[in-house]
């Protein structure tokens, strides 16, 4: 459930600001919703002595699916389709029905709405702060308004130019996760 929250939040964060952020940012986020990328995540929990590194790929097809694959250090994947969520790891495949995952349904609905051009689809979810550098690189910091979401992360910062390049999630207790995206050519 949290995973869905989070994946949704990654997109929702940027989308929530769509009404007030520059067009370049909106374009980059919408592009991210219909693209394929390699990601690298560096995570450090509060009180931990070292950083956990993970790599993988993500593939989004607007109105169809979002597939988050982990390649290292464990191989696993989670796919969000229009009516289910499919988990695949060394324990096998597990399918969760849409009806059992109301948050997923909500996120899907909002994300699809955003992708269709509704800039207000994520309104009211985040308090945001936009910063655009002269070279066109934008930085979008978002703080969740929902207390339940704040339990997961205290702020999320998306950064990019024409494409979404990174996402940084910070937790209240000082933990941080930095995800770097590198877009791959689309395989049709």
């Amino acid at each position: 459930m949290k995973r869905i929250w989070f994946i949704g939040a990654v997109f929702a964060c940027g989308c929530a600001a769509a009404a007030e952020i520059p067009d370049s940012c909106v374009c980059a986020l919408r592009r991210a919703l219909d693209s394929r990328a390699v990601w690298t995540m560096e995570r450090r929990f509060a009180g931990s002595v070292r950083t956990l590194s993970t790599t993988g790929t993500v593939e989004c097809v607007i109105g169809n699916r979002i597939e988050w694959k982990v390649l290292h250090p464990f191989v696993s994947s989670v796919s969000m389709t229009t009516n289910a969520m499919v988990f695949l790891d060394e324990d096998g495949e597990r399918v969760k029905n849409l009806d059992d995952l109301p948050y997923y349904r909500e996120i899907r609905k909002r994300t699809d709405s955003f992708a269709r051009g509704n800039a207000d689809a994520f309104d009211g979810l985040f308090e945001m702060n936009v910063d655009i550098r002269p070279d066109g690189v934008w930085s979008l910091e978002m703080k969740p308004e929902n207390r339940a979401m704040r339990r997961l992360f205290s702020s999320a910062t998306l950064e990019g130019n024409a494409k979404l390049e990174s996402a940084v999630f910070k937790t209240k207790d000082g933990g941080i996760s930095v995800i770097q995206f590198k877009e791959l050519p689309r395989v049709r």
Binding site: R3, I7, F45, A46, S48, G56, F74, S76, D89, R151
Partner: peptide, 20 residues
Amino acid sequence: ARAALRRYYASPVPPLLSPE
């Protein structure tokens, strides 16, 4: 134990409680 490691490493979602 293995599933927990997967979750901490692979999921972008932070855990509800700290690993400690």
